[in-house]
Computed example of a mutant assay.
Amino acid sequence: MSALGRWIYGQPYLLLTVTAMMWGGNIVVGRFAVGKVPPVALAEYRWTGAFLIVLPFALQAIRRDWGRIVRHLPILVVLALSGITFYNALIYYGLESTEAINGALLQSVQPIMIALFALLLYGDRLNRFQIAGIAVSFVGVVLIVSAGNPVTLLELEINHGDAIIVGAIVIYGFYSALLKSRPPLHPMTFLAVVFFLGALLLTPAFLVEYASGARMENTAGAWFSVVYVALFPSLVANFCFNRGVELVGPNRAGPFFHLVPVFGSLAAIVFLGEEPAWYHGVGWALIASGIVVSQRMRAR
């Protein structure tokens, strides 16, 4: 690894920010893929593609870690099942019957879910700075998602897709906290094994969906969706997120989920021509401030 790569590998806040950027795109692309790629198929192609991309870079490390993989297979299966199989299939299925705005707002609850499971699994408690930081950044999320008028959120239609996304968020909270018990494997080994197991465990649901007649369109939009989710929200984001949690722990990593709507709104301004407004700036500032506050105890 180059000197720059080693430096980046030791910067948790940079890694977690990149993670949020990739996952912000995942919500938008997941909604874009509705009608083009069936939800379980999108998750299956995503993780199979990510596994095939990472495998050549991980082969040597896998050979060295093989004994550890076998010894720690049960927890690796649990991590793959929660963080890959269930979470992604549910997110894409939920996005078929709700709006991206609902998905972004619901995902802002993720830091609370992570904190809950960190408490249940390890007895880790949020300190006052983390609680204050999550609250401040959540206000920023609400401002951005509601376009500066939180009252409009009361008019959002709640449907079964939202309930499915909530279920996915609960499962990913468990996965994020459980990363604290991640086996001592090389990072590339861990990615390859979890991607492979996640895709393998998705296969029965994929076959059922395929047998029902659901098919991916052979269009540029469908292929773009598959390539994007396999490369960026999967390979890049998971590498960065896993390392970020390793460096600062799940509770301090959680507030970075609030950056997801920040990057979503920036993408809308840059690529979709949306006009920047006061609530963008205020929301971004609140989210950034909340994240800084939530890391306060680490600085002390």
Rank of each mutant, 00 (worst) to 15 (best):
V70S: 02
H72N: 11
T48V: 15
P74D: 15
R71C: 00
P74S: 05
W66E: 03
P56Q: 12
T48R: 07
W47K: 07
R64M: 04
W47A: 09
T48K: 09
L55P: 12
R46P: 04
I69A: 03
L52C: 11
F51S: 00
I62Q: 00
V54N: 01
L76H: 09
L76Y: 07
H72R: 04
L73F: 10
A58Q: 10
T48E: 11
V70W: 02
H72A: 06
H72C: 12
T48Y: 12
F57R: 08
W66G: 04
L59A: 13
R68I: 15
R68D: 11
Y45M: 09
L73A: 12
G67K: 08
I75S: 02
I53T: 04
L76T: 09
A61I: 13
R46M: 14
R46C: 03
L55S: 03
Q60V: 08
Y45P: 03
W66L: 08
R46I: 12
R68L: 14
V70Y: 01
L73D: 00
Q60M: 13
D65G: 08
R68K: 14
A50V: 02
L76D: 08
R64E: 14
F51K: 00
A58L: 11
Q60R: 15
D65H: 12
R63L: 11
P56T: 12
R68E: 15
I62L: 15
I69C: 01
T48L: 12
V54R: 03
I53V: 12
T48P: 00
R46F: 10
V54T: 08
F57C: 11
L52G: 04
L52M: 08
R71P: 02
I69K: 02
I69P: 03
Y45F: 15
L59R: 15
L59D: 01
Y45H: 05
A58V: 06
T48G: 11
A61W: 10
R63N: 02
P56N: 14
L73T: 01
G49R: 10
I62C: 03
L55N: 11
R46N: 05
L76E: 06
A58C: 04
L55K: 09
G49K: 09
I53Y: 07
T48D: 03
Y45E: 04
W47M: 03
D65W: 05
V54L: 10
D65T: 09
R68G: 13
P56A: 06
Q60T: 10
W47L: 10
A61P: 09
F51G: 00
P74V: 13
F51Q: 00
I75D: 07
P74M: 11
A61F: 11
P56W: 13
R64P: 05
Y45A: 06
G67L: 04
F57N: 06
H72Y: 13
I75K: 01
L59P: 02
G67Y: 01
R63T: 03
D65K: 09
L52V: 08
L76V: 08
A58R: 13
F51I: 00
H72V: 02
L52E: 06
